[in-house]
Structures are given as C-alpha cells and as structure tokens.
Amino acid sequence: MKTGELVDLLARDTTRHAAPGSTLLRALVPAGVVSAIVMLWWIGLRPDLAAALHTPRFDVKLLLNIALWFAATGLVLRLSRPVDHPGIWPAVLWVVPCALLVGVILELFIVPRGQWWSVAHGTNSTWCLRLIPALALAPLVATLWMLRRAAPARPALAGAAAGLMCSGLAGTLYALHCPDDSPLFVGIWYVLAAAIVTLAGALCGARLLRW
C-alpha cells in the first residue's frame, strides 16, 4: 500500500481515545470501588478506627500510603506518554521512603530494644502481605489497561510505577483494617507488599505495554 493511501485510511478513522489522565480516572474509580467493597465487606475496618485517627503512628501510616499513591499516580501519568520526562515525580516519590526511614529511626529510639521484633512482627503480618496485593489487583488491572491505550516509552518502568501506585491505594485501604501502626511494622510488611505489587506491575508491563 502506498503511504498516501495509508494517510487516506488514517484520516478517515475518526475514533479518538480520551487523554491518559481521564482514562485513568475512568478506569480507577470502578476498580477502587471494587477494592473498597472487598475491604468493607470481607476484611472490615478496625473497631477502634475513630480512636486510632488521633494517634500519630496511625496517621503517619495512613499519610505515607496516601503520599505513595499520589506521587506514583503523577509518575504513571508522566510515563504513559511517549515523550519520557518523569519530571519532579521521582523526587516526590523519594519523600515517602525517606519519611518512613525517619519514622523507623525514631521508633527504634522510643521502643525498648527487647520489643523491636515483637513490634515489627505485629499481630497480622502475613495478612498484610496477602491482603495488600489482593486489594491492589483490580486497580492494577485498570491501570495497565489504561497504559495499554497510552504509549509508554518504557513499558516495564511504567508497569512498575502502576504497581507502586496501586500498592499505595491498596495500602491506604488496608491501613483502615490493620491494627499494627508502628513504623517498624510498616517498614517491613507494607514495603514487602508494595515490592510484590510493583514487581508484578513491572513484569506485566514488560509483556503487555509494548505498542
């Protein structure tokens, strides 16, 4: 086929997708609702949630997850376009582990050495590792779908960013259930859970996001 004929063909195709940002919103809202329903009906909120909101450890845990969610969302949107400038988002994202590290160091000073392990281990560490990836599943599928419609220059990296974003979202929801608020707990189990979801995102991205 001549290139001129191809141009005719392309010019006749008037179907045009929405910009990545609005597609992400459209995909993430229903997926987030699915995760929220799973959270509320099957997993349940912690009974002392109202009281926990007034404790600094709980607030830090919640805020770190929300911060991860938002910073990674910015990165995902940047990486969804072929012109690949992540901009300020990697720097914003670094704030999250740095803040967590500060929290961990402070906690090590506050908690007596003999209790470090029991605090870090918490009451339901394995649930954290299972439920955060489970809650991240629907949002990750939605985000990868959106990225498939977009044009990421680096598929694996975009997939990893999607994983980070969804672990932030899932962690935010799970934090409302999880009774363990210590930064020592968050620094191990939430981070491991986020690593699992991020790795899954990167692997799926490398396979699914080529265009």
């Binding site: 191809l6 929405a18 990545p20 072929p82 044009a151």
Partner: peptide
Amino acid sequence: TLLAIHLKRHT
C-alpha cells in the same frame, strides 16, 4: 510509525 502516531494521537 504513521500508524502508531495515529493510534496514539491522544497522548
């Protein structure tokens, strides 16, 4: 490349 530009023009 033209086809890719066309299909990805919303980016």
